[in-house]
Nucleic acid binder design. Structure first.
Lengths: 209, 209
DNA sequence: ACCTCCATCGACCGGAGCGGTCAATATCCA
DNA sequence: TGGATATTGACCGCTCCGGTCGATGGAGGT
């Protein structure tokens, strides 16, 4: 790819990137026209091919960019290494909201890319996934202290249900067009408060502080 | 459309219908080739055009068929008119499992159709939706008795969270290929049991029965 | 054996779309 | 003004796609 791409004014660069996420997230790889991406970005198709040698290179760049950006964003928000589940989720939410604000269609793009089957690219994508999963194997899974939850709660089930509800919320909203980050933050915080009320062990208000 | 379609052996008819759901659920309307549907159904494109005058007619037939089938299935399962939330959900689950078993991609199809924007068809689809919503306005919303839940639970939030978790589960599974109805039934029953344990007011075991 | 009906198919057509190229122009800076 | 770079519209060759049409072949009746 043409390195001059990185010398572009950031707003124009982001317009191109977001146009890519938008088009690639709405159709399969093969059925996503490069011309549509250029139009969405407000530039000509020729110029897009000036920065990226071909469609595949553009796609893989978007994929890698997505991975790097997400990881950096999560790290910056400090959601690794938390011991409190709900606090960790709150931080993750903050990161996600920030991300959606900057790249509204990145989430939908990564979902599609993850399950893309086109032989032109799926091998490269799978390889990249393996690499990142390998990295994450180092960052140990959060060590949940069962004592923070109401006794008798099936923790694994709780975790899975929260995961599915999050996915479902995102999916439900994504169908209705670009996500409104503010509404999302509000809804998720409410949901988190709800979960905390249901699952967290009641604080012993008489305990020494 | 050619009425002889309904004289087809049921298995062949279902093969065509399911092929339509499958292809239309994976691409937008315009980018779903009729040839792919025919191939998936194991017939020639010409034969498909022998039964349906054109692509649009096929699509709209699939849409209407989906609405009629779903409504009939829910009614047969008796999930309207329940007063107990969890029992109603269990019945709804049964209906859904049955539906998925017969038409694995119908769910994904209806999701896409609902938000389809192609001017060739979206008007007809929207009109159809309005008609069915008008019908459902008659069937009153379930009247939940707050006394069946643990005191202090935010009922609206609980309901919304269960909805999102269901959507999320379905979405999560759909990405991984055709849904296994047995696994789905098992997972959902577990999830329902979990919710019941969390939300339902403890039975007073000393009460008169 | 012959005819009729019709399910079914392969080949085909005209048009649209798409990836990618290239020569030409606009823009900017020295 | 000149030269480098940014940017474009027109274009090419190819593929794909919706839809048509004539041919085939088998089932059933006479």
């Amino acid at each position: 790819m043409n390195e001059r791409f990185f010398a572009l004014p950031p707003e124009k660069r982001r317009a191109i990137i977001n146009a890519g996420y938008r088009v690639f997230s709405r159709n399969s790889y093969k059925k996503s026209p490069v011309g549509d991406i250029a139009a969405e970005a407000g530039i000509s198709k020729s110029l897009l091919f000036h920065y990226f040698a071909n469609k595949k290179e553009l796609y893989l760049f978007l994929w890698e960019y997505c991975a790097r950006t997400t990881i950096k964003c999560l790290r910056d928000a400090g959601c690794y290494g938390q011991t409190d589940l709900f606090e960790s989720m709150r931080r993750g939410l903050g990161a996600k909201v920030q991300l959606i604000r900057k790249y509204p269609d990145m989430g939908a793009f990564v979902m599609r890319a993850y399950y893309e089957t086109d032989p032109d690219i799926c091998d490269d994508v799978k390889r990249s996934i393996d690499r990142y999963v390998g990295l994450r194997a180092g960052a140990k899974l959060m060590n949940l202290d069962p004592a923070q939850f109401r006794p008798g709660v099936d923790i694994q089930m709780m975790y899975q249900e929260m995961y599915w509800a999050s996915v479902g919320y995102l999916w439900d909203r994504l169908q209705r067009g670009p996500i409104d980050p503010d509404a999302m933050e509000r809804d998720f915080l409410r949901m988190l408060a709800h979960w905390e009320a249901i699952y967290r062990k009641e604080e012993d208000t008489n305990a020494v502080d």
